[in-house]
Amino acid sequence: MKTIMQNNNPNNQNILQHKLDELDHLPGEEAISFDASWQKLELRMNPVRRRRRNYLYWIAAACLVAGFLLPWALNRQKPNLNEVVSNTLPITPTTSIKSNNLVDSNANNTRQAPMLVNTIKSTEKPPFKAPAVLEKQIVLIPENPLAVKQSPEQEIIPAPVVDISAPVTAIVVKKPLGVVHLNDLNNADGSQLEKTAGNENKRILRFIKRTGVETSLGDRPDERTSGNHILLKNIN
């Protein structure tokens, strides 16, 4: 452009050029607002300032995102799921069996009537353990909520030894039947069943008397009355 301008045409009208170049305002028009124009020009000339402002906006946005993501990231660093479950879920009261009289399992004669086992249900509740993370109020659903771990402090008592070497026979009943251990009836003695108020026990007793079906631990009546019994209970 510079070189182009230097090559003036022969019809160059210097008078017009001088006239128009010296014109700095137009009659009937507002003069240029220097301050407003300068502000516009300053904005164009200082892109660094605008970039800095944009940079601040980006920082603010990053802080917001970090604020949302931080709790999530902290939750991911928590102990494994099983520990959380054992700490957060209340442990259901378990039944521990205390054996008063353990059966002598060394008996050689399998036909010998085994000793009765009296069991006592204990419903001691383990002390409630506060959840490990109370502040966060995190509730995690375990994969298998029913699989509750037993606390290590709970007393583990061996199950009563029952001699099951003798063959067990049972008659086929049309109605569906369930197996109930005699120990659950509080007493092996049939007479005590009458003491229980539940109709269920009475029904079982009647069933025994009527059918005479018991575990065939022995053919003799003394064997039947003194040994471990497995009764067939009418569920319905």
Partner: peptide
């Protein structure tokens, strides 16, 4: 002169400005 030039159509005005005022060929 300015008001007359401004009234010209854009094509005429540009060429006139460049030729008659600025002195280009």
């Amino acid at each position: 002169l300015f008001s007359l030039i401004v009234q010209l159509p854009v094509g005429y005005r540009t060429v006139f400005n460049l030729y008659a005022v600025e002195g280009l060929t």
